[in-house]
Design a protein around this nucleic acid. Structure first.
Lengths: 336, 336
DNA sequence: GTGAAAGCGCTAACAA
DNA sequence: TTGTTAGCGCTTTCAC
């Protein structure tokens, strides 16, 4: 049960070549005679030699490992992002160190330190918001950091997102067109930049275009999860809203179920639009009409972006905006 | 953007001590005078020194990193297991390299090779089944491998599970007690050991106890996912079954929605029990009655087990069986 | 096309 | 309590 015993040196001795040559064939360096290469490969197979990535990392100063900071693997939105990241990472032969941050400020910082200590070649950061402590970590990082599904208020890190503001505005407009006057806006923490400065503004843009006064009583703040959406349902019902736009699928599932359980008929008496179009959106009954966004692609593109950064390539665009759309399902009667 | 510049040597020079002493304070070795320790820590803070885990790994032959093989992060059952693993790993200061295997035999092997090359200190393996190729990898591994939510037919690897057979038997018995004569059994690939040799047997045990003949026409095989459950709904409806027991939540969500969409009233005309009690079980309407199992704990205990193995401690039990239960919800009328 | 040798940054004896 | 010194297994000049 003790680790790795056959080293590059053993292979070299057995194949009667130098370590350098073995290293060359292992790394696919062209400057090796075909004959030598075969001989070395034969010995590698015979001995069951497996290169030690740690030694390689130390010598080359590249670990072919990237760090991925995720608030919670268990949240489908982030899991889907992670999937996109992982697939592209695998394509480029990078491994992933996954670190749960629990959306805790201190854990985020600690996790970044761990990752940096492990000498990852780059980092993809996911989360609901960014604070100064974590921005400091980004600065301390001697490797590139890309954001997936997260906007940086300070615009310092490259990122991949959709246009949350106009997506929200479009969806709200759909509800407005359907005749709604009192539309609830439901999101996570309103101090969070993306909610406060993008999603909520989109909602307000739409109201303004329809000359409807913004009413704070129709704005509901929760905790990004199912439970919190479920609990909000009662207040939403009592707010005399006739429709709601929810910034996140897990909350939306909570809202629709909470409303249904409270005797409200969706979509007849109340219409709901959610934002992520993740798996849960089609599991609820009625199914959730949703802004559609390419979650997997956001992760994938962020990872692709990171590979470029790690190769010191210039980025054409620093903040990539992917297209969004709308899926009309059961939780709305006739939107869009 | 180039990596780490300040090394243990810089700290040593600046603090006027040897590298060994710096190493001792960094690693919390007791044999350092308080005064020296302070001095060194001050320099560390001043220089912003961060130990290089790669160098450390090479020198100590321990990376404090474990590999986690997961079929798909996007699947809630596995994500929840991963969460349990990660939390305990963090508690013991291990980092996690997460590797998606896609349930593909070749990817599983390849992923194991990667992990081993990275010199992980141990591996937790998740999946739906085990084949000989992957067992060979386990043997080649010079580090411990533990299984989470997966049984090894060959009983070579330590594992953490629930008693699937009796859980299935109990749940089926509940349906039998409620008067059902034609109960469908729905699972993933029936070639998979856990389905074939545990879950299906539990179902058969229950039927036998009630003198009901086993009918192959009531056994439905799918692909562990929502779509496949949804598609099976039609056949299940036509099988004249009056109830179903489903081996996995995503499939169960598909089945209940497929049935509902096909005009079948659940639970009035058809009762359903699922097996994992994951988040989706409470998102569907009606909510899914379910065998309850401590998914998070299975992951957590597997990780705890692995820490023992990595410390060369003896395991009291090699195959840990955690308790299961039953949650009576909307998809059954009165079971248990 | 191949080899020799100097590190990469750290830990772990062993001395002192 | 502290310092010296080999490595850990590999990559990477630089020669040849």
């Amino acid at each position: 049960m003790d680790k790795q015993t056959v080293t590059i040196y053993d292979v070299a001795r057995e194949a009667k070549v130098s370590m350098a040559t073995v290293s060359r064939v292992v790394n696919g360096n062209a400057n090796v005679k075909a004959e030598t290469k075969e001989k070395v490969n034969a010995v590698i197979a015979k001995l069951g030699y497996r290169p030690n990535a740690v030694a390689r990392g130390l010598a080359s100063r590249r670990t072919t490992t990237i760090g991925v900071v995720i608030p919670d693997v268990t949240n489908h939105y982030f899991a889907e992002l992670a999937r996109g990241i992982d697939d592209v990472a695998a394509m480029y032969h990078y491994q992933i160190i996954l670190a749960n941050s629990d959306e805790s400020d201190t854990k985020e910082v600690q996790v970044m330190e761990n990752l940096l200590g492990k000498q990852v070649d780059g980092i993809i950061f996911m989360g609901n918001t960014l604070n100064d402590a974590i921005r400091d970590e980004f600065k301390k990082a001697d490797v590139p950091v890309a954001l997936a599904g997260l906007l940086d208020e300070a615009e310092e890190q490259p990122s991949v997102n959709i246009a949350y503001r106009s997506a929200m505005s479009d969806a709200t407009t759909g509800l407005l067109k359907a005749g709604h006057k009192r539309i609830a806006f439901v999101s996570g923490d309103l101090d969070h930049y993306m909610n406060k400065a993008h999603k909520l503004l989109g909602y307000q843009d739409a109201l303004a275009a329809y000359d409807i006064a913004y009413d704070e009583k129709l704005v509901f703040e929760g905790k990004y999860d199912y439970q919190s959406g479920y609990q909000l349902a009662d207040q939403i019902k009592n707010s005399a809203a006739t429709a709601a736009i929810v910034a996140n699928d897990e909350m939306a599932a909570g809202v629709i179920n909470g409303l249904t359980d409270a005797g409200v008929n969706v979509p007849e008496d109340f219409e709901i639009i959610t934002s992520n179009d993740s798996k849960v959106a089609v599991i609820t009954r009625p199914q959730l009409s949703s802004i559609t966004q390419p979650i997997y692609d956001i992760g994938a593109v962020a990872m692709r972006m990171l590979t470029k950064l790690m190769n010191h390539e210039e980025l054409a665009v620093n903040d990539i905006v992917l297209p969004h759309g709308f899926a009309d399902r059961g939780s709305t009667k006739d939107v869009k």
